[in-house]
Every structure is written in structure tokens, then in C-alpha cells.
């Protein structure tokens, strides 16, 4: 747990914000896929912490960056904070994405703010990350520019066709494979649950491997309350699944563990 000083809290576009915390102890250790659990308000009304993926870190400056979307009371309060104010952070928490071997191409598949969770892979993987990013419409695309600035191959799908291919992000996978015969890929997914389940299904059908970061409501963030569980495959149980805690057993789960009928 640490008191982090807010250095920047700026508008990316629309309801998306970028917040930079000075918190050296976390900036040094955070890995792709992990999250921080933020106490947004000292008052009792919105006392529970909110989880946010660690988008980026700068160990030299001792900073950690989160990209968030204003969706409810907590994120509204967060958006009103100004540089110099403090936030109490728990973290880095949760399991990490496994950087892939040097001869494997890392492919991030992101929906909504999911592109924040996979960004550190651009620093951790040897090969350039391919980003497949999906959104309802162009204005909902987040961080695609940040990936481009790192030299990543960025491919876009929007539901309304306002940017990139019209359709779902999973539709971008087959063309990527077709263009690169013989190459090995490893997939990293992060986004809303329906997107992740569709992604898991597509990857399995195509015989591909990867890891998915599950987005579940959280409470304690440290494994104590069992409020954040997801179903994982369990051939030994009669119902073929059991619950695991997304805060400590996840949020990143290997593809083979994801139970498809949530």
C-alpha cells in the first residue's frame, strides 16, 4: 500500500482520462496485466477501492500510469482530482501476462480500455506487438495511437465501420494469420467479458494459444472476499468448472482455463 501523488490527470478524449501517479515502489515492479486498487475517496460514500490496469510505468521517474473511462460515481470523483493530490494505491496486484519467446509474435486483442492492460507488453516482448483493437465506434478507440507511436502494427475493427474493418475484433485474427504463413503468434486478450469469451472461442477453433485478462467486479482485491470470481475449466468436477478469484488467481488466466459458458 502506498500514498501516490497525482502528477497528471488529463483528458485523452471523450470520457477517457489518463492519470499519472508518482509511486516509485510500484513503478519498479509492475508487470503487464497487473492492476492497482485505488482508494478514490476518503469519505464513506464511495469507500470501496476501484481496480485499474497498469497502463504504463516509468521506473526512472518513479511513475505509474492508468487510463480510465468515466462510467460511474468513483471514476467521476477520480476525474476531478488535480495534480498534487494523493491517492492510496494497493498494488501491483494480480497475475501477469507472460512475455512470449523471441521467435513468437505477441498479439494484443483489446476492447474498450482493455488496450491499457496490454500496453506494457510493448516493453516486455522482444518482437513488435500487433494490436487488434475493437470498439463500438471510432471515438471509443483508446490508446491505438500510443501503440502506433511504439511502431506496433495496429489493426482496427468497429461495430459501425467508422474506423477500420466493420465488425468484431475477432474478425481481424484470420487475416493476420493468412498474411503471415509459418509465423508463430501468442495472443493477449483484455476487454469486456462477452468479447473475451468470443475471443477464447475463436482462438480455440483456430488452434491458437494465449492469455486473457478477465474484467470482473472487485472488492478487496487481495483474495479475501470471494467477490470477484470467474469460472475456470475443471474436468474433475461434475459441473466441469470451479470458481477462482480474478484478483489473485487472475486477472490474467491462460486460455485453456477459460470456461466458455459464463
Amino acid at each position: 500500500m502506498a500514498q501516490a501523488i497525482i502528477q497528471e490527470n488529463s483528458i485523452l478524449h471523450g470520457d477517457y482520462r489518463k492519470i499519472v501517479f508518482a509511486v516509485p515502489e510500484m513503478a519498479n515492479t509492475a508487470k503487464a496485466g497487473q492492476f492497482v486498487h485505488v482508494r478514490i475517496d476518503e469519505r464513506l460514500d464511495h469507500m470501496l477501492r476501484r481496480p485499474f490496469s497498469i497502463h504504463d510505468t516509468d521506473p526512472a521517474k518513479g511513475t505509474l500510469t492508468v487510463v480510465y473511462k468515466i462510467v460511474g460515481a468513483g471514476t467521476h470523483i477520480l476525474a476531478e482530482k488535480t495534480p498534487g493530490e494523493c491517492c492510496d494505491l494497493l498494488g501491483p496486484l494480480g497475475t501477469t501476462f507472460t512475455p512470449c519467446a523471441d521467435d513468437v509474435v505477441p498479439v494484443a486483442v483489446a476492447g474498450g480500455y482493455g488496450s491499457a492492460a496490454t500496453f506494457l507488453l510493448t516493453r516486455e516482448c522482444k518482437q513488435k506487438v500487433v494490436l487488434l483493437i475493437g470498439a463500438r465506434t471510432q471515438s471509443e478507440l483508446v490508446l491505438d495511437d500510443a501503440y502506433r507511436a511504439c511502431g506496433c502494427d495496429v489493426r482496427v475493427a468497429t461495430d459501425d465501420g467508422s474506423c477500420g474493418v466493420k465488425g468484431r475484433v475477432t474478425a481481424l485474427i484470420a487475416p493476420l494469420l493468412a498474411e503471415n504463413p509459418g509465423k508463430k503468434f501468442f495472443f493477449y486478450g483484455c476487454g469486456p467479458l462477452p468479447m473475451l469469451l468470443a475471443l477464447a472461442k475463436t482462438l480455440r477453433e483456430l488452434g491458437l494459444d494465449g492469455e486473457l485478462s478477465m474484467d470482473e467486479i472487485m472488492c478487496c482485491g487481495v483474495g479475501a472476499c470471494f467477490g470477484c470470481v470467474v469460472k475456470v475449466n475443471d474436468p474433475a468436477s461434475p459441473q466441469k468448472w470451479h470458481y477462482e478469484r480474478s484478483c489473485v488467481d487472475g486477472p490474467v488466466f491462460p486460455l485453456e482455463k477459460i470456461y466458455l459458458e459464463h
Binding site: 464513506l44 460514500d45 464511495h46 469507500m47 470501496l48 470482473e216 467486479i217 472488492c219 472476499c225 470471494f226 467477490g227 470477484c228 470470481v229 470467474v230
Partner: peptide
């Protein structure tokens, strides 16, 4: 799921 929700001053 969902198993928890926040309410004013509690959960």
C-alpha cells in the same frame, strides 16, 4: 456473479 455492490456507506 455479481456478488457484491457498493451502497452509500457500505456494501
Amino acid at each position: 456473479m455479481p456478488r457484491v455492490c457498493e451502497v452509500a456507506g457500505g456494501m
